[in-house]
Simulated assay, not measured.
Amino acid sequence: MYKNLAAIAMAASCFAFPTHAQKNEPLKVGFVYVAPLTDAGWVRQHEEARLAVQAALGERVKTTFVENVAEGPDAERVIRDLAQTGHKLIFAPSFGYMEPTLKVAKDFPAVRFESVTGYKTAPNVAAANARYYEGRYLSGIAAARMSKTGVAGYVAGFPIPEVLQGINAFTLGMRSVNPQAQVKVVWLNAWFDPGKERDAAMALMDQGADVLAFHTASTAVMTAAQERGKLAIAYHSDMRKVAPDAQVLAVTHQWGEHYTQRTRAVLDGSWKPGKVWGGVKEGMIRVGWFGSKVPKAVQEEVLARQKDIAAGTLKPFTGPIVDNQGKAVLAKGQAMTDAQILDMKFLVSGAQGKVPQ
């Protein structure tokens, strides 16, 4: 189970590394990106974090990145190449990078690896993720307030727990405002495929969805909504540049502080493997960047609920929760444990679709 940022030391093993030895040379830090670097999206947020590391630590570090690296053999090749070329800290922010990272780490015990969205650790591999679902719940509230049809569309990448958490939290957020709201789900089995993302968005709008959400890496869903005069929830980063009229709000991921903290730990010799799972409270997830069509009252409502999540008084996965097959999942008043959330394999009532096997 992931711990919050303050508990890294408690979650870590006793395996420790010496202080970065070459005092006169910068620490080489590598970043591997699963999609092309664009102006907005998943990769953009990690690039912003890289730039934050460089700005904070200056000449003490030298950061580099490799973009558009497919999960699987390509990822192993690139991660191994970074380790072989003197990078002593490597960030691998994609779920499918987890196993390749672990494999390379065995061959380079003096290199530290950060598996971002992975969950397995090793003596020189740490894991980190964010509670994206907290932002999804908040965006669902806004979507329900803005929707005229009560029907939203959701373009989803792969059916892993992280994505299911987001779909379910979004649906529960909508239903906290409109108990009859429906969310239609389309699975792509891809993280970055702008053509397929656009086609899915168009199909969902043809089926009556007037607000779209997505868990993919490009801006294609946003531009489709802009083109059709519909609304959409930006994901990963602010996307008003490409969808100035369509954007309701943005659910953003803020990695800069965490990446800087982990890099500084390598420099001072305090780095330890462990697990981090931070959300709104820790500043890793934020909603805002409201579009011009969103009334002030809706903005204030969403931001108030964001404060409630930060304070721990609002937990998105609180019962009663029923799945979309009618099976009771959680009793009234109960809150899901982190272990249950991390192992999520179902869609809640109101989410139309099936979980691919």
Rank of each mutant, 00 (worst) to 15 (best):
I8W: 13
A9W: 12
S13C: 05
C14S: 10
F17I: 15
T19Y: 05
A21M: 08
Q22V: 14
K28Y: 11
F31L: 10
V34F: 10
V34T: 14
T38L: 11
D39M: 13
A40V: 13
A40N: 11
A40E: 11
W42L: 05
W42S: 11
H46V: 07
R50S: 10
L51P: 04
A52I: 06
L57H: 13
V66E: 14
V78W: 10
I79T: 15
R80L: 03
D81W: 14
Q84H: 02
T85M: 08
T85D: 13
A92W: 02
P93D: 08
E99Q: 12
P100K: 02
K103T: 14
V104Q: 02
V111F: 06
V111Q: 02
G118R: 08
A122L: 11
A127P: 14
A128H: 06
N129I: 03
A130F: 12
R131Q: 15
Y133W: 12
G135V: 14
I141V: 15
A143Q: 07
A144C: 05
R145P: 04
R145N: 11
V151N: 09
A152C: 10
G157W: 02
V163G: 00
V163D: 01
L164Q: 01
L164T: 00
I167V: 10
I167F: 00
N168Y: 03
G173L: 06
R175Y: 02
S176R: 05
S176D: 09
P179D: 15
A181V: 03
V183P: 07
V186G: 01
V186I: 15
V186Q: 08
D193M: 06
D193P: 05
G195I: 13
K196H: 05
E197R: 01
M202R: 06
Q207Y: 03
F214S: 14
A217S: 12
M222D: 07
A224C: 09
Q226M: 03
R228W: 00
G229F: 04
L231N: 08
I233N: 09
M239Q: 14
R240D: 12
R240K: 15
A243C: 03
A243F: 06
P244H: 06
D245R: 08
V248W: 03
L249Y: 09
V251L: 12
T252N: 08
W255H: 08
G256D: 07
H258S: 12
G269C: 01
G269R: 02
S270V: 10
S270P: 10
S270G: 12
W271V: 13
K275F: 15
V276A: 04
V276Y: 14
G283T: 09
G283R: 07
M284I: 11
G288A: 07
G291T: 12
K296F: 01
A297P: 01
L303G: 07
R305F: 14
R305C: 10
I309F: 04
A311P: 05
A311Q: 13
A311R: 06
P320M: 10
I321H: 04
V322N: 04
G326R: 15
K327Q: 15
A328T: 07
L330P: 09
T337A: 09
D338S: 09
D338M: 13
A339K: 08
A339R: 04
F346T: 01
L347S: 00
V348M: 01
K354C: 00
V355H: 00
V355D: 01
Q357P: 06
